[in-house]
Design a protein around this nucleic acid. Sequence first.
DNA 1: GTGAAAGCGCTAACAT
DNA 2: ATGTTAGCGCTTTCAC
Lengths: 343, 343
Amino acid sequence: VSRVVRDAADVNQTTRERVQQAIQELGYRASPIARALVRGQTRTLGLLVSDITNAFYPQLARAVERQAALDDYLVAICGTDDSRQLTQRQVQRLLDQGVDGFIHASTVGDEEQVLAIVGNPDRVLFANRRPARPGCHYVVSDNVLAARLLTRHLMDLGHRRIGFIAGPGYATNSTERVRGFQETLRAMPETTGLVAPGDFSPESGSRGVADWLDSADPPTAIIAVNDSVAVGVLEELDRRGVRVPADIAVAGFDDALATLSGLIGLTTVSQEVNTMGRRAVEILVSLLRHESAGLPQQEVLAPRLVVRRTTAGAAPPSAPAMGVHRGASPNSVIDHDSPRRNP
Amino acid sequence: VSRVVRDAADVNQTTRERVQQAIQELGYRASPIARALVRGQTRTLGLLVSDITNAFYPQLARAVERQAALDDYLVAICGTDDSRQLTQRQVQRLLDQGVDGFIHASTVGDEEQVLAIVGNPDRVLFANRRPARPGCHYVVSDNVLAARLLTRHLMDLGHRRIGFIAGPGYATNSTERVRGFQETLRAMPETTGLVAPGDFSPESGSRGVADWLDSADPPTAIIAVNDSVAVGVLEELDRRGVRVPADIAVAGFDDALATLSGLIGLTTVSQEVNTMGRRAVEILVSLLRHESAGLPQQEVLAPRLVVRRTTAGAAPPSAPAMGVHRGASPNSVIDHDSPRRNP
DNA sequence: GTGAAAGCGCTAACAT
DNA sequence: ATGTTAGCGCTTTCAC
């Protein structure tokens, strides 16, 4: 029977049919648990996210789930709330349930901790965030490039004073984006970059903007470290009656609001999240099969600038529109929907 | 050793310590697979959703995952795209991987099919949508009441001509909401209800609105069968320069845009999704333990009206504002953020 | 090509 | 209180 179920080569046609006949009649189903016991794997992957309800995690989860299905893996999703403690408990729990490997996509820098618990680094693939420790396997976006594209875009629109609302310092996603921002500004004279601290929350966006607007010389454009923070920025500007993009332009990262582009129209840099999810599974699965000769598997995906209404249009009020050439830079996508009015 | 690991009662303190000592030194971890084989369960639940990227599924998934963690269950999420075929494949796959039970939360009426594949109805708990077939276990919102609350709210604001953009006919979520809408209107003379077909997509919302606006006598308020559809409605109104809520009021269901309430401010009826997820797991787990005496476990949760900007404010232009008493109806929550301007 | 048997690493029941 | 043993339902190896 076992040979028939597994489609083994050396089974006579007639026997095979007889067995399948019997399987039908008895409603027999092979026990996946017994198989797992013998093979030593459950074909289940753990996906660690900060919080499935925020940002782009649902998209990532979908991409991961789809690819995993193709490879016959189950995906167990776990929220870590970016808390060390919770992460530890969750990883422990997944391990105790017998997951074969992890895709670790939450944002904080807890790679040492997770690797220590899991034991085998070949069972962990980092996605979305680049681990600080060398030698890890990962699939990430090029955050530095992403920030460059965005900053460049704003400078092309004539902005010379740009604010950046950052995330926590232990999140490489944030530090890399800040770095790309600052590098790009430094390459261009007569530009000023302001960086405000934040924590990935919309509130940190509101707070950062509020402080700048209360200051003597606010920026004419604001970049938020991700789209959630950008929402906070937009809310605060809205509360104060500041027009976007006429008075201040706004942009974010991740394209987490793509489905609302008609209403919100936030300029952003899209991570290729479908590719990220797909590759994450592919690499992890090959790792679990020991197909990768012990080399660290590291992939960096190209981000894509998505220009929408919150930056589109005219140059900032203070600066004269010099050297403005909107759109069609190599990596950019113009996504103008309709002129915006009132929701 | 087994007794120590499982914290069995009849073990001497000293022996226990010796064993734990050894466990420490050897880095021993009990194999969850072997345990699963003996106990006949994997402690894994399958969560079937239409598409994790839409509407309120991420919230549901989080609530489910949290409760499942407390009960030491893993949650494998699967998207069905509301397709019969895919659903069948996914259920098959989850079963072949050995999940103990299902939380079925996608929207279409495929209960017969799923129950047939699973075999045992006590392994399936329907959430979010009420199954047409009697005797199933489920946790749902009171959709009829939800629609009543919303319709009532609009009538209280003075609206007498209200449009409803429905979902597919085989989704009880849609038919029940339409029913509540129509019942409420029927109870009130001089009111007119219009129902447009749709499919839960934003596009169907845009289309429905467009048709009404092109007609002789468009409604002064529009209810969308869920918040995604409402987004489509808002987009179309925006494109045409119709002011919300001054010209037309808009509302949805699910409170899927809660995190964007500052920017979009959509009036909606919130399903108590955290409770739904929690109860879904609790009930399913008790079902799997055969604690429920064979009775169908059915729970209906009270919805909660959340009034925001898209309906707040003045009566519609055409109707005189008679009998308008906004707000504080028993089940309602007022959630006025700030006056809206421009994003 | 097919049948028989030895595990996989646990748990539970039974001796001691 | 502790040691021993018979499975759980597969896969794999080895005889036939």
